[in-house]
Simulated scan of single mutants.
Amino acid sequence: MPVPSSPLPPRAPQQALPFSAVVDRLRAAGCVFAEDEAELLVSTARDAAGLASMVDRRVQGLPLEHVLGWAEFCGLRVAVDPGVFVPRRRTEFLVEQAVALAPPDAVVVDLCCGSGALGAALVSALDAAELHASDVDPAAVRCARRNVAGAAGRVYEGDLYDPLPASLRGRVAILLANVPYVPTEEIGLLPAEARVHEARVALDGGADGLDVLRRVTASALDWLAPGGHLLFETSERQAAAAVRTVTRDGLTARVADCAERYATVVIGTRGIGAGSAP
């Protein structure tokens, strides 16, 4: 009769990376805020193996937010899936401008919504807003639907206004349009985190960076309510041309900026008596 084999000893759990080792690996990979990133990775990881995997992905150059699966934006934890545009902290300034202009029951539309961070943050600051959002990228739409679910928001897949319900025409109080505004020839100058790991459609604004914006402003009067506002982010050097685009299409325009956050926002307003575009 064969002799029974001895049972295998239990496998020892994988040893967690010491915090100092995480910091050292991140710093060696060029992460400027290595200690802060290490704290986020350690607090988010479910176990030692998960932490090791997260550190590996960050060291390989994935955006921190894609590694974590979320980004902090306007005090919210916003889900950010791989490949989806990561909401920038400077864009919180745009949301702050929108909050100051929006009535409590505003109808809000978030074009080029990406993760849905802007719309979700805005309606979280209002009492009874109605939120609609759209994006041409299916991955962004899936992500945004999770982020706006708590606000009963609706997200549509399609190009700018195309998928929006016709019933919204002339009713929109706040039109957020975080359009791509990087000139095509400058895409190659972006950090690899954006250039490699975010969808190009979320970055490329055409030859002068304003191609998508022109398409937004061309139809804005059709969708804005009287007194409604279009808000979008641009660069400081593009602001003058962006203002001309807004005014050409029938809106009054002003520029708000925040030097501390390097943020420039253009606000276009439909006059109370202004008709829709022909």
Rank of each mutant, 00 (worst) to 15 (best):
R11G: 04
L176I: 01
V243E: 15
R11I: 03
T252N: 14
G50E: 00
G273R: 14
L221C: 15
A129F: 01
E193K: 13
A79F: 07
A218T: 12
V99E: 08
V99F: 05
A152D: 03
P18Y: 07
R171V: 00
R27F: 05
T184Y: 09
G271C: 12
D137Q: 03
A218P: 12
S5T: 11
T245I: 13
A177Q: 03
F19E: 14
A192Q: 08
V42S: 08
R244A: 15
G153R: 02
G158D: 04
L230G: 06
V107M: 06
G153I: 00
A202I: 06
L26G: 01
A48D: 08
Q238A: 09
V148F: 03
D56T: 15
E157P: 00
D105K: 04
G268K: 10
H132R: 05
Q97G: 05
I174H: 03
S5Q: 15
A48K: 07
D47M: 12
L40N: 13
V108C: 03
L175Y: 09
A48C: 08
L251H: 11
L41N: 04
V109I: 07
G170C: 04
G227C: 14
P10F: 13
A140I: 00
A149S: 11
V22C: 09
T269A: 02
L189A: 08
P82G: 12
A121I: 02
R270D: 09
P138C: 07
A239K: 06
T247Y: 04
E260G: 00
E193I: 01
L131M: 14
L168Y: 09
F93I: 01
P191I: 07
T269D: 02
I187E: 00
L68Y: 05
L190A: 03
G273H: 14
V265Q: 03
L62A: 15
P13Q: 13
E233P: 00
F232T: 05
A128K: 13
Q14H: 13
E157V: 03
E186F: 05
T91G: 11
P104W: 10
F73M: 04
T217F: 11
